[in-house]
Design a protein around this nucleic acid. Structure first.
Lengths: 191, 191
DNA sequence: TTGCAAAAACTAATCTAATTAGTTATTATA
DNA sequence: TATAATAACTAATTAGATTAGTTTTTGCAA
């Protein structure tokens, strides 16, 4: 017999991530997680507050991981290249961790201070990336919202199989990002 | 005693829509729906195939309704104005029917022929709206995907309370749509 | 009209999964 | 080594979907 598995939250979140990336977050159950961890379901309550509590912790975990991806991609890049780099990192993250990403969006408890901190890191990173365009503070926020909408929208639709036409999806993504970048340049020169 | 409620699918979908728009689609249960309809939960199985079957029918209902909104907004408009009009209609639909919209995205059975038909109407409508830009066929699809990503992304994030900063959300939306439109013009003139 | 077949309701029972209560075993440390 | 804290366990409860089997209602044809 293997020695009793030593559980802690980081192991639990790792295994939970595997489960939700494979089966989707709606299929996550304490039964399946407990089995994967080699314990009985009630034992899990020592580590988090029920299934909903787990999903909230998972949401935070996902935002932190997304931030890591984007940060890695952004270092050493500037301007349009930086925008493209963080966008690529975003889509790559969602493709690698679809269930985790989904959890981050659907089970984010807006009151949780730790979640807020993680989300702010992402926003700040994107604000930095957009500094190259010399936007005023308000316009910078508008554009962060815009880029985020694009990234979230595209990846979500891709993941739900929403792009039906037989046309290269990666190319659509590149064109979308470039269209947005062109739009920013155009708005700057007019503004 | 009131006479027995005469149920049919359209009444059921109407009441279901009310429930999900109020409480979110994850809170939808046959118990709550049955109560609202004045019947016992098992009776509902005469009208659809279980909770999942109901959600799939609801998804189709939502896409059809979204199409109606957008169609209304598009008639008599052309070019940039038409793009802005359908975008406004989209966001208005999601704000009015957040749960129904959510269901359309999350419980869309990609094999269902009726759903496909409804989704195609939306795509065709947007293709028509973009005809003003004289894009070639492929580029038209790319841009449909782009606009859809923007609309889905923005409305989803808004609904999940993701725009935290104290900055007018409607203005962010206008700027995003205008940035996209400017981007198209710029890409056309370069392409 | 009347009577029968189909449709749609009902009750009772089953099944899955989360959760709670109460108990026991393990671990770390004083 | 004794003890307090931690984390596991079993057993029981609850909520909700679903199924089985039955009864009621309804619509149409004789």
């Amino acid at each position: 017999m293997a020695r009793r598995m030593k559980l802690d939250l980081s192991i639990i979140l790792e295994k939970t991530t595997e489960l939700v990336d494979e089966n989707g977050v709606d299929k996550l159950s304490l039964g399946s997680l407990a089995e994967k961890l080699g314990v009985r379901p009630p034992s899990l309550y020592n580590h988090f507050e029920g299934l909903n509590g787990l999903k909230q912790k998972l949401a935070i975990h996902g935002v932190e991981k997304l931030h890591e991806y984007m940060l890695q991609a952004a270092v050493g890049k500037a301007g349009d290249d930086a925008v493209r780099a963080v966008s690529e990192a975003y889509i790559q993250f969602v493709r690698t961790h679809p269930g985790l990403y989904d959890a981050s969006n659907r089970f984010a408890d807006t009151n949780d201070i730790e979640l807020q901190r993680a989300q702010e890191s992402v926003v700040k990173l994107v604000v930095q990336v957009l500094q190259a365009y010399n936007l005023n503070d308000e316009m910078a926020i508008h554009m962060v919202r815009g880029l985020r909408s694009i990234l979230h929208g595209f990846t979500s639709i891709e993941h739900m199989g929403g792009f039906g036409m037989p046309l290269d999806i990666d190319e659509s993504f590149l064109i979308l990002i470039n269209t947005f970048i062109e739009g920013i340049h155009s708005i700057i020169s007019k503004g």
